[in-house]
Simulated scan of single mutants.
Amino acid sequence: MTWTESETETVAVTADDGVVLWASRSGAGEPLVLCHGGPGLWDMFGDAAGLLADLATVVRWDQRGCGRSQRCAGPWTSERFVADLDAVRRHFALDRMALLGHSWGAQLALSYALAHPERVSALVYVAGTGIGPDADWHEAFVENFRARLGDHPERLARWQELTNRPRRTEAEDRERAVLQWSVEFEDRERALEYAGRMADPWFAINDECNKALNAERKRVWGTPELYAACRSLDVPVTIVDGARDIRPRTAVDSLERALPNVRRVTLPEAGHMVWTNDPKGFREAVARAF
């Protein structure tokens, strides 16, 4: 199904267990469904969707319990989130769709493609961390994060102060998130400005969701079963990396080696927020993917 209108349509999608998910559709062309990062966050793809509006019908959604979607008690599992993504597909009457996932959303999009390859025309895997164990990347990420935020010692000190507080106000939660997200932008002079845009509008971070899905990744990622499933995936995959991402890009080598039909695009001047750091390179990579 191809959407031909240029307006943005905002809808409520009901999952098979009754939880209501926020979703929107804009642009024109073949369907491209975006999976946002987190876990526990919400769709922040406004700028990316604008870059792609003339290439595809762009569908965005907030994952369950997050952002504009209904607050609920979970369950917080990849299987449940894959089912929610399928509910989005059905709502928009898509027989097949291209998927683009960013960060944690790249993991979710990959999980969906592994579960339902016949429903995925192409997968764009952006700024993920591969299919190996956390040991492949997490320690280096933490070290790089502290070094990057430490370029502004007052920001690091404030982030540590807020992180160590047993309770924070909503305003303090937002301040902490903006400081944390600022490390993802290569334009260091405008990093806080860009991170502030990510936090506008602000919704409470779902910490329970974040902890549960990260714990699941630690149990499941890096297993022989996952490597075998990726080796059998009959879907064209484009991996898009920002070379300056503070998550080591070598972690993604595990995924690239396993996939039978893969192309990898590394944008040398981009970090984790690829479309902000290099909008032209990001748009070209996505345009070639489907």
Rank of each mutant, 00 (worst) to 15 (best):
C35P: 10
R64W: 03
D47M: 12
D54H: 03
V82N: 15
C35H: 07
R68I: 11
P75M: 11
S69V: 00
G46R: 13
V20L: 07
A53P: 13
D47T: 14
T57M: 11
L32F: 07
D86M: 05
G18Y: 03
C35N: 07
V82F: 07
P39Q: 05
D84Y: 15
R89Y: 00
Q63L: 03
T14M: 06
C66G: 04
A73Y: 14
L34Q: 01
L51C: 04
D47S: 11
T57N: 09
L85R: 07
W42F: 00
C66W: 01
M44L: 09
T14L: 12
L51A: 08
Q63M: 15
T57P: 12
L32Y: 01
W76Y: 06
F45I: 06
P31V: 04
G18F: 05
L34K: 04
G18L: 05
D84V: 15
L85E: 07
L32T: 09
L34D: 04
G27A: 04
R80G: 08
R64H: 00
F81E: 11
D47R: 09
C72K: 09
V19W: 08
F45W: 06
R71L: 08
G67N: 02
G50R: 15
F81T: 11
A56C: 03
P39C: 09
C72Q: 10
A23P: 05
R60H: 03
D16Q: 12
G27P: 01
T14I: 13
R68N: 05
G65R: 05
R60D: 00
C72N: 10
V13L: 08
P75E: 10
V33D: 02
T57Q: 06
W22C: 07
R25Q: 01
R25F: 01
V20M: 06
V20I: 10
R60M: 01
F81M: 12
R90F: 10
D84S: 11
V19H: 04
L32K: 10
S78P: 12
R80Q: 15
C66I: 01
L21Q: 05
D16E: 15
F81A: 14
L85A: 07
A87T: 06
P31C: 09
V33I: 03
D86L: 10
P39T: 02
P75A: 14
A73S: 15
W61T: 03
T57R: 12
E79S: 14
G38C: 00
S78N: 13
A53Q: 13
P31G: 10
V13I: 08
A87K: 07
A23V: 07
G46Q: 15
A53E: 14
A83L: 11
L85S: 05
G74F: 12
V13H: 10
W42N: 03
V88I: 15
E30D: 10
G38N: 04
T57F: 02
G74I: 12
T77L: 15
G29W: 03
D43F: 09
R25Y: 00
P75C: 10
G65Q: 08
D84E: 03
E30T: 09
V13K: 11
L41M: 02
R89S: 02
G65D: 02
G67T: 03
G18K: 08
A56Q: 09
L34W: 04
E30I: 04
G40D: 04
F45A: 05
R25K: 01
A56S: 05
C66H: 02
C35V: 14
C72D: 02
W22Q: 00
L51W: 14
D62F: 03
